[in-house]
Protein backbone atom coordinates (compact mmCIF):
# COMPACT_ATOMS: atom_id res chain seq x y z
CA UNK A 1 0.00 0.00 0.00
CA UNK A 2 1.49 3.32 -1.08
CA UNK A 3 2.03 6.06 1.49
CA UNK A 4 2.92 8.64 -1.12
CA UNK A 5 0.83 11.74 -0.23
CA UNK A 6 0.24 12.59 -3.89
CA UNK A 7 -1.09 9.15 -4.59
CA UNK A 8 -3.39 9.36 -1.57
CA UNK A 9 -4.78 12.68 -2.74
CA UNK A 10 -5.39 11.30 -6.22
CA UNK A 11 -7.34 8.42 -4.70
CA UNK A 12 -9.57 10.87 -2.87
CA UNK A 13 -10.16 13.04 -5.95
CA UNK A 14 -13.21 11.13 -7.27
CA UNK A 15 -14.87 11.39 -3.86
CA UNK A 16 -14.10 15.10 -3.67
CA UNK A 17 -15.57 15.66 -7.14
CA UNK A 18 -18.63 13.64 -6.21
CA UNK A 19 -19.22 15.81 -3.14
CA UNK A 20 -18.54 19.04 -4.99
CA UNK A 21 -20.84 18.30 -7.91
CA UNK A 22 -24.12 18.97 -6.08
CA UNK A 23 -22.70 22.24 -4.76
CA UNK A 24 -21.86 23.42 -8.28
CA UNK A 25 -25.24 22.56 -9.80
CA UNK A 26 -28.02 22.10 -7.33
CA UNK A 27 -30.94 23.70 -9.12
CA UNK A 28 -33.55 24.52 -6.53
CA UNK A 29 -37.10 24.78 -7.82
CA UNK A 30 -38.25 26.27 -4.52
CA UNK A 31 -35.80 29.12 -4.86
CA UNK A 32 -36.75 29.30 -8.53
CA UNK A 33 -40.34 30.00 -7.49
CA UNK A 34 -39.05 32.94 -5.44
CA UNK A 35 -37.02 34.19 -8.38
CA UNK A 36 -40.12 33.90 -10.54
CA UNK A 37 -42.09 36.01 -8.05
CA UNK A 38 -39.32 38.60 -7.86
CA UNK A 39 -38.41 38.86 -11.52
CA UNK A 40 -41.19 37.52 -13.73
CA UNK A 41 -44.63 37.39 -12.12
CA UNK A 42 -45.66 40.97 -12.89
CA UNK A 43 -45.81 40.06 -16.59
CA UNK A 44 -46.06 36.26 -16.59
CA UNK A 45 -48.17 33.63 -14.90
CA UNK A 46 -47.05 30.08 -14.24
CA UNK A 47 -50.66 28.92 -14.41
CA UNK A 48 -52.01 27.28 -17.56
CA UNK A 49 -53.93 29.55 -19.93
CA UNK A 50 -53.27 32.73 -17.96
CA UNK A 51 -51.65 35.28 -20.25
CA UNK A 52 -50.65 38.66 -18.89
CA UNK A 53 -48.57 41.23 -20.73
CA UNK A 54 -46.37 38.22 -21.37
CA UNK A 55 -47.57 34.70 -22.19
CA UNK A 56 -48.19 32.00 -19.61
CA UNK A 57 -44.97 30.15 -18.82
CA UNK A 58 -46.77 26.99 -17.77
CA UNK A 59 -44.91 24.00 -19.28
CA UNK A 60 -42.76 26.29 -21.40
CA UNK A 61 -39.76 23.92 -21.26
CA UNK A 62 -39.40 21.90 -24.42
CA UNK A 63 -42.02 23.85 -26.35
CA UNK A 64 -41.50 25.90 -29.49
CA UNK A 65 -41.34 29.67 -28.96
CA UNK A 66 -44.44 31.61 -29.92
CA UNK A 67 -46.81 28.73 -29.35
CA UNK A 68 -49.00 29.77 -26.41
CA UNK A 69 -52.60 30.00 -27.62
CA UNK A 70 -54.41 33.34 -27.50
CA UNK A 71 -51.24 35.37 -27.04
CA UNK A 72 -50.03 38.03 -29.46
CA UNK A 73 -46.28 37.52 -29.99
CA UNK A 74 -43.83 39.81 -31.69
CA UNK A 75 -42.85 38.76 -35.18
CA UNK A 76 -39.32 38.27 -33.88
CA UNK A 77 -40.45 35.68 -31.34
CA UNK A 78 -42.90 33.99 -33.69
CA UNK A 79 -40.21 33.47 -36.30
CA UNK A 80 -37.31 32.77 -33.94
CA UNK A 81 -37.48 29.00 -34.47
CA UNK A 82 -36.40 28.50 -30.88
CA UNK A 83 -37.31 25.45 -28.89
CA UNK A 84 -37.11 26.24 -25.20
CA UNK A 85 -34.36 23.91 -24.06
CA UNK A 86 -32.65 24.68 -20.77
CA UNK A 87 -29.77 26.30 -22.64
CA UNK A 88 -32.05 28.51 -24.71
CA UNK A 89 -34.08 29.50 -21.67
CA UNK A 90 -30.89 30.35 -19.84
CA UNK A 91 -29.61 32.51 -22.70
CA UNK A 92 -32.96 34.27 -23.11
CA UNK A 93 -33.41 35.00 -19.42
CA UNK A 94 -29.84 36.30 -19.24
CA UNK A 95 -30.17 38.63 -22.23
CA UNK A 96 -33.60 38.61 -23.86
CA UNK A 97 -32.99 41.12 -26.59
CA UNK A 98 -29.63 39.67 -27.51
CA UNK A 99 -31.10 36.17 -27.80
CA UNK A 100 -34.21 37.24 -29.71
CA UNK A 101 -33.53 40.65 -31.27
CA UNK A 102 -36.79 42.52 -31.77
CA UNK A 103 -38.69 40.66 -29.06
CA UNK A 104 -41.06 42.83 -27.05
CA UNK A 105 -40.12 41.71 -23.55
CA UNK A 106 -38.97 44.77 -21.60
CA UNK A 107 -36.63 42.98 -19.25
CA UNK A 108 -32.97 43.74 -18.84
CA UNK A 109 -31.92 40.20 -17.99
CA UNK A 110 -30.96 38.18 -14.93
CA UNK A 111 -27.20 38.14 -14.37
CA UNK A 112 -27.03 35.51 -11.62
CA UNK A 113 -26.45 32.11 -13.28
CA UNK A 114 -27.52 30.20 -10.19
CA UNK A 115 -30.78 32.11 -9.97
CA UNK A 116 -31.40 31.40 -13.66
CA UNK A 117 -30.79 27.69 -13.10
CA UNK A 118 -33.23 27.67 -10.19
CA UNK A 119 -35.80 29.58 -12.21
CA UNK A 120 -35.49 27.12 -15.10
CA UNK A 121 -35.86 24.24 -12.67
CA UNK A 122 -39.05 25.86 -11.38
CA UNK A 123 -40.34 26.28 -14.94
CA UNK A 124 -39.43 22.67 -15.72
CA UNK A 125 -41.70 21.64 -12.87
CA UNK A 126 -44.74 23.50 -14.22
CA UNK A 127 -46.41 20.75 -16.17
Amino acid sequence: MSHNPTTQLLRLLPLALLLAAPLAHAADAGHGAQVFAEECAECHSASPGKNKKGPSLFAVAGHVAGGVPDYVYSDAMKHSGITWTADKLDAYIAAPRKTVPGCKMKYDGLDNAGARADLIEFLNNTH
Binding site: A41, E42, C43, N51, K52, K53
Partner: peptide, 8 residues
Protein backbone atom coordinates in the same frame (compact mmCIF):
# COMPACT_ATOMS: atom_id res chain seq x y z
CA UNK B 1 -55.41 46.47 -21.43
CA UNK B 2 -52.20 44.88 -20.19
CA UNK B 3 -53.42 41.59 -18.77
CA UNK B 4 -51.41 42.41 -15.65
CA UNK B 5 -52.88 42.31 -12.16
CA UNK B 6 -53.56 45.52 -10.22
CA UNK B 7 -50.85 44.26 -7.86
CA UNK B 8 -48.24 44.41 -10.62
Amino acid sequence: QTGDDCAA
